[in-house]
Each structure stands twice: as C-alpha cells, then as structure tokens.
C-alpha cells in the first residue's frame, strides 16, 4: 500500500504539468483547470487497478476530459482576464495561444488539447471523447488550421 502511494506520487509529480495544462485549456481557467486535474488524479488513484498499462499520461488525460464533461454539466466555466492559463507573467505568445484556443469551438479545442497538447493519438482522443475517429481527425485538422492562422505572426517573428 505504501509502495503504491509512493509510486503513484512519482507519477503525479511527473505528469501533473501535462494534466493541468490540458485541464486549464479545456476550462480556460487556471483554478478550475487545477480542480479538474486534481479530481482526475484522485479518480485515477481510486481506479488504479483498472489501468491496463500503456501511457499513464494518456489515461489520466482521458479521465481529466471526463471530469471536465461531468463538471461542465452542472456549471458554466467562465474565462476571466485574471484567471486564464496565459495570465500571471506569461509571454505574449502564450497569451495569444490561449486566446486562439478560446476561439475554437468546444470539440475542436478538446481534440486539439488532447492530441496536440497532451500528445494522445487520434484513437485515444476518440476513446476519451466517445466520438468517431473520423470526427476527431477533422476537429484536429480544422482546429489546427485555425490556430495556424491565428498564430502565424509568431512563426514569422
């Protein structure tokens, strides 16, 4: 039991940034995102025996997405200027990435956050989103194109 906790603590420490970044992008809020990430890790801890191997990060990110959906049913996440992932000393580039992500629709943002941000495969993202693989691929394509257009200035700089 103690060994389990220690190992799990190491996994949390290693992947907390990825899961928090994903959750912040989904909720467009630092505090709400961190709450989702924390809930996701606790769910992962309780259901650790159901983890069948593979990418731990992908598994927890999928749980975080489910936590986000479950939490969203009961409330509306409100992005504020003071509490978004790009606030607090962030560079202009990161601030614009945040704004560009906020301009995507929910499915595009989730697919981009899962695939490009958290590094899930299209198939893993489709499983997490409970959506057809083809839909996820097209959300990623459309979202990527919109991000590329919005962020073109930074590539030129």
């Amino acid at each position: 039991m103690a060994g389990d906790q220690k190992a799990f603590g190491q996994l949390v420490a290693r992947h907390q940034a990825s899961v928090r970044a994903l959750s912040r992008r989904l909720t467009r809020s630092v505090s709400d995102g961190d709450d989702i990430a924390q809930a996701a890790f606790l769910t992962a801890w309780r259901r650790r025996s159901s983890w069948r191997g593979g990418s731990f990060r992908g598994w927890v990110c999928a749980i975080a997405y489910r936590e986000f959906l479950a939490t969203r049913k009961g409330r509306v996440f409100e992005a504020s200027e003071d509490d978004h992932p790009g606030a607090a000393g962030e560079t202009g580039e990161r601030l614009d990435l945040t704004r560009a992500l906020a301009a995507l629709d929910d499915n595009e943002r989730a697919a981009i956050a899962l695939c490009l941000g958290a590094g899930l495969s299209h198939a893993e993202a489709a499983l997490a989103m409970e959506a057809p693989l083809g839909s996820v691929k097209s959300w990623v394509l459309r979202g990527r194109a919109k991000l590329q257009k919005a962020l073109a200035a930074y590539e030129r700089a």
Partner: peptide, 21 residues
C-alpha cells in the same frame, strides 16, 4: 508562413513547461 506542427508543439510545450508543481 504559418506555424506548422513543430511551431504549435513548441508553443504547447512552452506553456506546459511554465507550470510548476
């Protein structure tokens, strides 16, 4: 000239790297 996958990946990685424990 638009950011390709590498450009977007770099931006996402930078955002993630800025998150401290």
């Amino acid at each position: 000239e638009q950011p390709g996958d590498d450009g977007l990946a770099r931006m996402f990685a930078a955002e993630e790297a800025a998150i401290r424990d």
